[in-house]
Design a protein around this nucleic acid. Structure first.
Lengths: 337, 337
DNA sequence: TTGAAAGCGCTAACAC
DNA sequence: GTGTTAGCGCTTTCAA
């Protein structure tokens, strides 16, 4: 393993000069720099990241905390973080909290995160109050993508507006009796996102002078399977049933859609279905939804983190991300309309 | 930032003893150990990973190289790696190669991976010949999950058998004219997986004394959208069209399924559709498939890596993962049968 | 069982 | 523009 000393010796300079040359710092003459770079290349020199971490105190690594990595939003977001990071020579250290839900097992302000990363990006997740406290005590750039956490800068869509938009779309079509499938208070996920979306739904319904049928409010956990399950419960409702269902995510909406078809319900004639997200699968299945771009949101968050690390104080700040109603084939006026 | 010296001072011992105590090494009396641990806890001491990396030469980090992170197989696999790693105090450093396909930009044996990780897990991807060479030169435990790479230990299903099984299922049902949708030679993906799956298909067809209709062989890139696109091309075939289609992945099969329904084709009456993977979405949509478990495969691969790092020479080895035909609702005998 | 001290390989003042 | 040198915070012989 060739070290900086060997390069220095080969190039006939000191290690300090090699260090400057390799890192592109000023105060090295073009000629020496070229000679050093050539020798380094020739010897196959790669700086020891451990040594430079120790010497500089910087890890050039950002941590990503995610409740899941195998779900749409998270996979997309992680891809976004990676894109920004590796392009600029930063490393991505992934922490998947899935499964380990007891707060004592997730202590991230301690050993996990501490001293291993320069900045932290949180992906929309439920946090225990004590964890939020821990977070505030972490002395490094911090941003959350996908769902608000009190007191921390957030990049994400306006969830209230998303739910409201999609509900109003249905009302505009003439639906008066609308079912809701929202995310449960899954301990793995940020508590506020489901709650906020429900508020948007409520307000839209009430603003149209309609009522919410408590029996037509279902809970899911953001998976397709939970959507299918919800549709089965929907079928047990006495007629006349709601003519539309708003789902808090596309994955759940797709579950509802599949199961509806399986049971012979016609979509949208018998039941209009809407989701939130913009999942590719939804596009192919013709699902009406509110589109959002998790990759872009994560890139934005990462850029802020990097800017802050670059000395730009105040670079990290909350930002509302783009969303767009995409009307496709799962919504139509109710049959009786 | 409290360091080992402060703990040593507080406990009235040397830093060497603190180091041993903290890491659970022998040669520390129970009493001193307890005292040290207590002080460390009290002072909120967290060892500097940078310093210990430098001193030991070990990073306690394993690298994961993936061509994508936002696709089913990869998300599942990454979750599996994470699970094994963090449980044992290892870190996961993620490298997403998506997008950067030019070989010169992905040199992973150099700076990227070098000296930053103790072991490397590759997720099924296409590799340039020179990259395979680089890989062989890397002097650390190495395993690939999901698709064979010449000369490197692999954990994954028997792709040939998967394709053959699914095709024989169709033939057993009475189908004589079967279309194929396979993965293209996408430069991001391991070249061999699509190829091997095609062979399984071919052999099954020929073994039944049937012919392959070259016009009924489509290419996709493993996305839903490419499945939908393939179905559209399928519809341009002159009648009588194939009565079944085998797809190299569930995501593509779902695309075919959605698009078939949109065009009024009845599945499975007019067209039987099968996939490979065991995607949750497929389960809900009733898709017949060959199930596999990427999470489990990745866990297995990670365990091997960790065992090897633990000194168990030969722990890393190729292993064939479990697969299972799951017959659901998208397959049936052809209508005319 | 414990301690002293020499590194691990690089960076950052500061001097030249 | 370049070199000297003292760390960065931990681990690891080797002695005691």
């Amino acid at each position: 393993m060739v070290g900086i000393e060997e390069v220095a010796a080969a190039a006939g300079v000191s290690t300090a000069t090699v260090s400057r040359a390799i890192r592109g710092l000023p105060r090295v003459s073009p000629a020496t720099r070229a000679r050093i770079l050539a020798k380094a290349e020739e010897l196959g020199y790669v700086p020891s990241s451990a040594a430079s971490r120790l010497a500089t105190g910087k890890t050039r690594t950002v941590g990503v905390l995610a409740p899941y990595v195998d779900r749409w939003f998270f996979g997309k977001a992680i891809a976004g973080v990676d894109r920004e990071l590796h392009g600029r020579g930063y490393n991505l250290s992934l922490f998947n909290l899935g499964g380990r839900s007891a707060p004592r097992e997730r202590l991230f302000s301690r050993s996990m995160v501490h001293k291993q990363i320069d900045a932290l990006l949180l992906l929309c997740m439920y946090l225990y109050p004590e964890e939020v406290e821990d977070l505030h005590e972490i002395d490094m750039p911090l941003v959350v993508v996908g769902g608000p956490v009190a007191g921390i800068a957030t990049v994400g869509i306006d969830d209230y507006q998303a739910a409201r938009t999609i509900t109003e779309h249905l009302i505009g079509l003439g639906h008066r009796h609308i079912a809701l499938l929202h995310g449960s208070d899954d301990l793995e996920l940020n508590f506020s996102v489901p709650k906020i979306r429900v508020e948007g739904f409520h307000d839209a319904v009430h603003a149209a002078d309609l009522e919410i049928d408590p029996d037509a409010v279902f809970f899911g956990n953001f998976t397709v399977a939970s959507g299918a399950e919800a549709l089965r419960r929907f079928l047990t409702l006495p007629e006349p049933r709601p003519t539309a269902m708003v789902c808090a995510s596309d994955e759940m909406a797709l579950g509802v859609l599949f199961e509806a078809r399986r049971h012979g319900l016609r979509v949208p004639e018998d039941l209009s279905i809407v989701g939130i997200d913009g999942h590719e699968m939804g596009a192919c299945a013709g699902l009406t939804t509110v589109w959002q771009d998790p990759t872009g949101q994560a890139r934005r968050g990462t850029q802020m983190l990097l800017a802050e690390l670059g000395g730009e104080v105040g670079a990290v700040h909350s930002e509302v991300a783009e969303q767009r109603l995409v009307v496709r084939e799962t919504t139509a006026p109710p049959a009786a309309f």
